[in-house]
Simulated assay, not measured.
Amino acid sequence: MVTMISLIGEQPLPNFLAILHYQPNQVLCLYSKITKGHFDRLQSTVQNHQHLSVSIRGIDVDPYNMVNIIDNLKRELYQQKLVSQDLIFNLTGGTKIMSLAAYQVAQEWKAPMLYLQSEQKQATIMLYQWKDNEPQQIDQQEIYSEHLTLKDILDLHLGTGAWYQNTKKRSDAGARFEQTLADLLRADGYEILQNVRSSDGQEEIDIVVRFQNRYGAIEAKCKRSTPHNIEAIKQLVTSTKQLGSYVQRFYILTVPLPKEQRELVERLKIRTIILESYKDGQLATEDRQKFLSDIAQVLR
C-alpha cells in the first residue's frame, strides 16, 4: 500500500496531477490554516473522482515552523507504521519550509521523492531515490492524464458544487458568437464548458477551454463598434482570479481595441484575438485559422 505525502500550497493542480499519475492508496496532506480551503477542495475532488479510489486526509501544521512540521509528520508516520517502501513524498507544493521539512523526513525514511514542474505547456515529474544518503534522480517524464477534466479543474479551484453551467437558451448576437467559437474549439479537439457561473455569482465565464493539462478562460464580445469601456476586461480578470496561476486568459472580439485598452490587456497578460470577418455565425477561413492558431500557441 502506497501513501503519498503532499504539501498543500496556493496551487492545487500539481498535487492533483501527481495523484492522478501515481494512483496511491492513500494521500496524507500537510496544510496550514491559510491553505485549509485548498485542501478541502482537493479532498472533495479526489473523493468524488470516478477514476480514483484514494483515501485522502490532512494534518494542520505551522507552515513556517520546521520543527512543528517534522514532529507532526513523523508522529503520523509512526502511528501508521509506515516504512520507506510504503511512501512517496511530493515536494511540489507548500512553503519552502514545508518542502525542507518533508525532504528531511524523506531522507530519514529513505523514501522516494518527486517534484512536478508545470510551468511549461507539459507537466514533468522528476523522481528521486536515495543512494549513499544523497538524492539521485532516477526518472523524468512528461505526464498527462486522460482522466483530467474541466470539472476537476473547476472543482479544485472553486469547490465541488460551487459552480454550474447556465443552460438558459439565448439567441442574441453575443450568444451566437460564443457558440461559433465553442464549436470551432470542440472540432479542434479541445474540451469546452460554456456559460460557467459560480454559485455565489462572483464568477461568470463565457467559455472555459482545456487541452491536456492546460486550460484557459475566454471572454467573447460581438461588437459593431470599438468598445469604449473596460468592463469586459474587468469581468475576465475578476472571474478568473480564483482559477489559479496556470489559467490562460483570452479576450475575443469582432472589432479592434483602442490603444489604451490594448496596453491594458498586455499588462494583464491577456491574449487578444480580433475576428473582424465574423457575421451571423460565420467566420472567414483566414480568421478561423488565426483563432485556432492563437489558442494553440498558448494551450498546445
Rank of each mutant, 00 (worst) to 15 (best):
N90K: 03
W109V: 14
V61P: 06
M1H: 07
Q141N: 11
E10A: 14
A220Y: 09
L185P: 02
Q289M: 09
I153D: 00
A111R: 12
E10T: 13
S32Q: 05
S198M: 04
R214M: 03
K96I: 12
E231D: 15
Y128I: 03
E203Q: 12
Q194G: 07
I70F: 06
K169P: 12
D287V: 02
I97P: 01
I273T: 10
K36G: 09
I56L: 06
R210A: 08
V265D: 09
N166P: 07
I70V: 10
L30D: 10
A220G: 09
V2I: 14
R288D: 04
K259R: 14
I143A: 02
E108V: 11
T124N: 04
L181Y: 01
E119A: 09
Q179D: 15
V247A: 07
S55K: 15
V265M: 08
Y22D: 04
C222L: 07
S55T: 13
Y128Q: 05
T160P: 00
D60N: 08
K290N: 13
Y251M: 11
S99N: 15
A18Y: 00
E146N: 09
Q242W: 02
H228P: 05
L292F: 00
Q120M: 10
L7F: 10
L185M: 04
V105R: 11
E76P: 05
M126Y: 09
K151M: 00
I138D: 06
K221N: 03
P135C: 02
E219C: 01
W109Y: 15
Y278T: 15
Y103D: 06
K121V: 04
L193S: 09
Y246I: 13
L283M: 05
D139N: 11
S199N: 14
Q136A: 11
R271G: 10
N72A: 15
K290V: 02
K269T: 12
G93E: 08
Y115Q: 10
I252R: 07
R288T: 10
Y251A: 13
V67C: 08
V255K: 13
A217N: 04
G201N: 12
G174S: 13
L73Q: 10
E219Q: 15
R214K: 04
Q79A: 15
Y128F: 15
K279W: 14
A106Q: 10
Q120F: 09
F250I: 06
F39T: 08
Q235V: 06
Q107N: 12
N48V: 02
P12G: 10
M113T: 00
T92F: 00
D71A: 08
R75W: 08
E260G: 07
D155C: 01
A217G: 01
N68F: 01
L268P: 03
E108Q: 14
S225T: 14
E10D: 15
V54D: 10
F39R: 05
T240I: 03
D287R: 15
Q235M: 11
A18M: 03
F211I: 04
K131Y: 11
I19V: 11
A284I: 09
G94K: 00
Q80Y: 01
